[in-house]
């Protein structure tokens, strides 16, 4: 048993201060490297948080002539192109075209500003009525009664080459003002 118990170098490590200093070096270096490595992983997984919601495209509602002699609100189904991750899909959505006086038209979202049910136009009562919680609105979408805190949401619309177009957007439910959901 003439050989030394330990290889040279081990002794110095056994000094408690040296050992705890070394341990701290390992912890700090390991921590820094792990943090650096986590950055791309977090960016990758949290991509949906940072991804720019793409600008909603304009959808055709119909020829403007069709609405020329419009007396009251009329429901229309529109095709909305949307990008769903790595695929693009076409979804259908309902909107109301309402006469806004002096030949102008306005397009209202059918989504109730209360909790998001589809609002119905009831001709007999001359009111938009939400079937869920009974919110009512006038023929131009102004608030009349019930739980909603604001009027029906008007959507951006324009006339291009005689075609009425609308940009479908969603707005925050329950809020008193119209705030787009980003």
């Amino acid at each position: 048993m003439s050989t030394p118990a330990c290889v040279p170098g081990q002794e110095t490590d056994s000094v408690p201060e040296r050992r705890s200093f070394l341990r701290n070096v390992f912890v700090v270096v390991g921590g820094l490297v792990s943090t650096a490595l986590a950055i791309p992983l977090v960016r990758f997984a949290a991509f949906p948080l940072r991804a720019k919601e793409d600008e909603t495209s304009w959808s055709d509602v119909g020829k403007v002539d069709e609405f020329a002699s419009l007396a009251g609100p009329v429901a229309r189904t529109i095709d909305v192109q949307r990008t769903d991750g790595w695929r693009s899909s076409t979804a259908q959505d309902g909107v109301y075209v309402v006469p806004a006086g002096s030949g102008a038209l306005k397009v209202l979202s059918s989504v109730c500003p209360h909790l998001g049910c589809a609002v119905r136009w009831i001709d007999d009562k001359d009111r938009f009525i939400c079937p869920c919680h009974g919110g009512t609105f006038t023929r131009t979408g102004a608030y009349v009664s019930g739980p909603p805190r604001r009027a029906m949401d008007e959507l951006d619309s324009k006339v291009e080459n005689g075609v009425l177009k609308v940009r479908l957007q969603r707005f925050r439910q329950l809020a008193a003002t119209k705030e787009p959901v980003a």
Binding site: D79, T83, D84, W86, R87, S88, S89, T90, Q92
Partner: peptide, 10 residues
């Protein structure tokens, strides 16, 4: 990148 057209399109 070109998104894939979903088969649920009309």
């Amino acid at each position: 990148f070109k998104p894939e057209a979903a088969s649920s399109a009309p």
